[in-house]
């Protein structure tokens, strides 16, 4: 009996990280195809910096750094940061983001499993806030330009249909971003099928985001904040929904608490996207939702 029980054992933390990295590959490939090799360069930089920071931090904490590296959590954080930071950005952005993510986001709290906030988002937000200019420029068919979100925000008079024809947009969402989001969604579906992550969190998040977008859609007029479909395919929505929000360490366990967690993240993201000054509110949404996790855990224990 216990033998069968043991087989139901949730995947080892190492396997989890391996599976998550594997699930990211389709998305990475799509983005590399669309935005050129800069994406891969970016990821490479992040991976190396993450590996170095992890080793240094572990040594500083007198821990066996080889064992620490074997749990594969640093590469996952590096990939997430690498995908969030725009490839066109100066080299300082991914480096700062990754170092902050690993050092401040994870090791300041005591290493794997101890952190309160998702390390990748901590790193990304710190870099975003300290170098806002670097984060605004995403390559649009090989020339870097404002992202779809940015154009939508400063839209003065074009209806959604006309917006879609401007260079920053592809056919339904951000240029190229709709394919990347689709690839990430597929990767996420694989993770759910393998039981690595629960379906409840990403689905609630996407539904809530879509719902809010629908509420403020007012028929695609110039003042509209974008249709649900656009919101799903703009920015790195799917990446956040399936890979960042579902980080087991920083989301609550009780089912009802996970619903509120997703609602907080979705509400914040939408508010910032519609009326805020930053182009994309995903990172802030994740941080606020992570901040609410201890309270939600306690409230719905």
């Amino acid at each position: 009996m216990a033998e069968t029980m043991a087989s139901q054992r949730a995947p080892d933390s190492r396997q989890t990280m391996l599976w998550v990295s594997a699930a990211l590959l389709p998305g990475i490939a799509t983005m590399a195809a669309l935005f050129g090799a800069a994406v891969l360069l970016n990821l490479g930089v992040c991976l190396v910096v993450a590996w170095l920071t992890e080793a240094v931090c572990l040594r500083l904490r007198h821990r066996d750094w080889r064992a620490g590296l074997r749990d594969f959590s640093a590469p996952v954080t590096a990939l997430l940061v690498g995908l969030a930071v725009p490839p066109g950005a100066p080299i300082a952005a991914p480096v700062l983001a990754t170092v902050t993510a690993i050092a401040l986001g994870k090791h300041a709290y005591g290493g794997l499993g101890q952190n309160l906030f998702n390390p990748a988002m901590v790193g990304y937000t710190v870099a975003l806030v300290s170098m806002p200019a670097a984060f605004a420029l995403w390559p649009v068919d090989a020339a870097s330009g404002a992202t779809a979100l940015d154009t939508l925000k400063h839209n003065d008079g074009l209806t959604l249909a006309e917006l879609l024809r401007t260079p920053a947009f592809g056919s339904i969402g951000g240029y190229g971003w709709e394919w990347a989001n689709l690839a990430f969604a597929m990767g996420g579906a694989v993770l759910i099928a393998r039981g690595i992550i629960g379906w409840r969190l990403p689905v609630t998040f996407l539904l809530a985001l879509g719902g809010l977008a629908l509420a403020f859609h007012d028929g695609g007029s110039s003042r509209s904040a974008g249709s649900p479909l656009m919101h799903w395919s703009m920015g790195s929505t799917m990446l956040a929904a399936f890979f960042v929000l579902t980080d087991p360490v920083t989301h609550p366990n009780p089912r009802r608490a996970q619903i509120y967690f997703a609602l907080i993240a979705a509400a914040t993201t939408f508010t910032i996207r519609a009326w805020g000054s930053y182009p994309d509110g995903l990172a802030f949404g994740v941080l606020l939702a992570n901040a609410a996790t201890p309270y939600l855990d306690r409230r719905f224990a």
Partner: peptide
């Protein structure tokens, strides 16, 4: 199980900072 240097106030200040970072997103509403 926080590293010795971070126990007590340091980690509290760091966490408060990150929380404030989260709220910073609402700037310019």
């Amino acid at each position: 199980d926080l590293p010795q240097a971070m126990r007590g106030t340091p980690i509290t200040l760091v966490s408060a900072g990150i929380l404030a970072l989260g709220v910073m997103g609402f700037q310019g509403l």
